[in-house]
Design a protein around this nucleic acid. Structure first.
Ligand code: SF4
Ligand code: SF4
Lengths: 160, 160
DNA sequence: TTCAAAGAGTACCATTTTAGTGCTATTTGA
DNA sequence: TCAAATAGCACTAAAATGGTACTCTTTGAA
């Protein structure tokens, strides 16, 4: 279903909490209890986010995590990059993975364009938009229109 | 890595072959030998594509597959829908999957927008563009510019 | 000085998903 | 009637995912 991993999703939730909570330090246990996620999972994710440079950590007693930079400067693409590596919708979109069909295949370049378009969409949404009040989702990315009510409503194909 | 499944990728290759080969019937074995994929895999994929209505099949001797409609009317989104079900980047993007965080989570709506944007990008690329002559990839979707050389850092030309 | 609260790092396992294969039934032209 | 071809399951091996456990290091405070 072209889904991103649950952990990436959770990471977004965690970052959103940190962003909303302000600049103070928050322990993993604190974040876990506020978000409803498991403590070990939150701990693991915060570690990864710290390695990626999205949050900063303070060790020792009274330690914790906080956002490394303002929420406006953290994009959805950053989060995905941190947890899943660069977006690569096909094998040939990634530099280190080889596709043996590459010589016969003529569709690769088109997927590259799609890949780039997706990346742009991800880059365009920042954390402060993610936590924006539910009623006012201000998309800078206007393409969302006209795409039709695909994701939501009734006719759930559920073809799986 | 936000990757689509290999089978979906292969399906695209198969459809591209059918599109390029014209309106005649092609057997699964034929397609397999031309694309370099395994016969059982091709067979399975063509079955799925037939169920999704992207190709039509003729049973019996001298049977085979062909595109159900002109290549211009088959989009990348169609292919992904056929094999992976509707695009749903998060659990809450899909109607039949429940996320227990949905009450606490404030980021869902933003992901919905991203989801829609991705869907639009996929819908905008049709099969005839996928097989378009390598030198003239005409993107109707101009956003591909300016996104930077993200996907192919090094020598990943792949634009054959 | 000592202790306990935190994060850092690593390794591991259970589950799920993916990819591929095999087999049988059905259709249909020759 | 036969053989070529798709239709439809059912199954298995391999990989990715999600979650957990454990030890090590840092550091503020008693
Ligand atoms: S070369 Fe073709 S088949 Fe291989 S990963 Fe790229 S698009 Fe897919
Ligand atoms: S509700 Fe929030 S946590 Fe749950 S799937 Fe949607 S975005 Fe992710």
């Amino acid at each position: 279903m072209l889904r991103m991993s649950k952990l990436t999703d959770y990471a977004t939730v965690i970052l959103a909490y940190l962003a909303r909570a302000g600049g103070e330090l928050h322990t993993a246990a604190d974040v876990a209890s506020r978000t409803g996620l498991g403590v070990p999972t939150v701990s693991k994710l915060l570690k990864l986010l710290a390695q990626a440079g999205l949050v900063t950590s303070v060790r020792g007693a009274q330690g914790g995590y906080q956002l490394a930079r303002p929420a406006e400067q953290i994009s959805a693409a950053d989060v995905i990059d941190a947890l899943e590596g660069p977006v690569a919708i096909t094998a040939c979109s990634s530099a280190d993975i080889q596709c043996e069909l590459e010589s016969v295949c003529r569709v690769g370049s088109a997927w590259q364009r799609i890949n780039t378009a997706i990346r742009l969409a991800l880059k365009d949404v920042s954390l402060d938009q993610l936590i924006g009040s539910p009623g006012t989702p201000r998309p800078r990315f206007d393409l969302a229109e006209a795409a039709g009510a695909d994701t939501g409503p009734t006719a759930r194909g559920a073809s799986r």
